[in-house]
Design a protein around this nucleic acid. Structure first.
Length: 253
DNA sequence: AAGTTCGGCAACCGCCTTGGT
DNA sequence: CACCAAGGCGGTTGCCGAACT
C-alpha cells in the first residue's frame, strides 16, 4: 500500500509514516502551527523532510480530513469541476470540504476518469432525436452538468471564486454568495476548517477589516480573542514572529 | 493452491510560483 | 533586476490486497 520506510544519504526518512511519527507531527502542529515546514521536522523531533511533513499533514493528519467513501454528489462535483478546471486538483479541493487534492486526484484516476469517459461515449453514440423526453433531460443534464441547480452553483462559484482567473481579489461577497447559492455549508471552501479546528467554541476571530473570507494562511496570521476571558491568543505565522514571542525558549538553542 | 494481473492509494519527485533580499 | 529559499502543485511511482487464471 505504501512505500517501505528507508533513509536517504542525508539520514532523512522516506516511505510510510509510523503512528509515532504521526503523533509527533500532529501534536507539534496543533500546538505551534506550521510556521516553517523546512525547520518543523527538527523542532518536532522527526527525521523527515519538510515537504514530507507538509504532505502528511495536508493529506492525512489535518483535522476534519475525510478518507474514502466518496458520495455520489462528491463524485459528480469532481467530474463537473474537472470539465471546468482540468487537472487543477488543489482548486477542486477548495469545493470539497475534507478532501485533499491528492485524494481527489487519486479518485479521478482510479474511478472517475473512466466513468466520465463512459458517460461521454454513451452521449456521443445516442442521437438526441431518439431519446424520450426524460432521456433527453438526462442527456442535457450530463452534457450541461447532471444537476441544473448544481450547474448554476458551479458557474457562480467559478466566476466568483477568488481562485478564478476572472476574479482579481478575495471578495467577501464570494463567500456570502457561496453560502446563499449553496444553501449549505457543504459547499464552503475547505479553508474554513482552520477556523473550526484551531478555535475553541468560545473563541471568535478578531479582524481589523472584512472578515467574511479568511483563507487558511490569513487565519494563521490573525489573532483570536476568547470571548469569556478577553485574552488574546496568537498563532505564529513565521519563525520570526514565533521566536520573537518565545525568545526565552530558544535563547540557548 | 500457487502464480499473475489489476486496482487503489500513500508518498515521492521535479517543476513552478511566490516572496524576500 | 537577479538570485535564492520555501511552499505548493501535478505527475508518477511503489507497494499491498483483491481478483482472476
Amino acid at each position: 500500500m505504501v512505500k517501505t520506510p528507508s533513509f536517504d544519504n542525508n539520514g532523512v526518512k522516506k516511505g510510510a509514516w509510523s503512528e509515532d511519527e504521526d503523533d509527533k507531527l500532529r501534536a507539534y502542529i496543533q500546538r505551534y502551527g506550521h510556521w516553517n515546514w523546512r525547520l518543523l521536522p527538527k523542532f518536532a523531533g522527526l527525521s523527515r523532510s519538510g515537504k514530507s511533513c507538509r504532505l502528511r499533514w495536508v493529506n492525512y493528519l489535518r483535522p476534519n480530513i475525510k478518507h474514502g467513501n466518496f458520495t455520489k454528489e462528491e463524485e459528480d462535483m469532481i467530474i463537473e469541476l474537472h470539465k471546468k478546471l482540468g487537472n487543477k486538483w488543489s482548486e477542486m479541493s477548495a469545493y470539497l470540504p475534507g478532501r485533499s487534492d491528492n485524494e481527489i486526484k487519486n479518485r479521478w484516476h482510479t474511478h472517475l476518469k473512466k466513468r466520465a469517459k463512459d458517460e461521454q461515449t454513451v452521449l456521443d453514440n445516442q442521437p438526441i432525436g431518439t431519446l424520450k423526453p426524460d432521456q433527453t433531460n438526462t442527456k442535457h443534464d450530463l452534457i450541461h452538468n447532471s444537476d441544473t441547480a448544481l450547474q448554476m452553483d458551479f458557474d457562480f462559484l467559478l466566476a466568483e471564486s477568488p481562485l478564478s482567473s476572472s476574479s482579481t481579489s478575495l471578495s467577501s461577497s464570494w463567500f456570502n454568495g457561496l453560502l446563499d447559492s449553496a444553501g449549505s455549508s457543504d459547499y464552503a471552501p475547505i479553508d474554513y476548517f482552520w477556523n473550526d479546528n484551531f478555535l475553541s467554541e468560545n473563541d471568535t476571530i478578531v479582524s481589523s477589516s472584512d472578515n467574511s473570507f479568511i483563507p487558511s494562511d490569513l487565519v494563521y496570521q490573525a489573532s483570536f480573542q476568547n470571548t469569556n476571558t478577553g485574552d488574546d491568543n496568537f498563532f505564529w505565522s513565521s519563525v520570526d514572529s514565533y521566536l520573537e514571542h518565545n525568545h526565552d525558549q530558544f535563547i540557548n538553542f
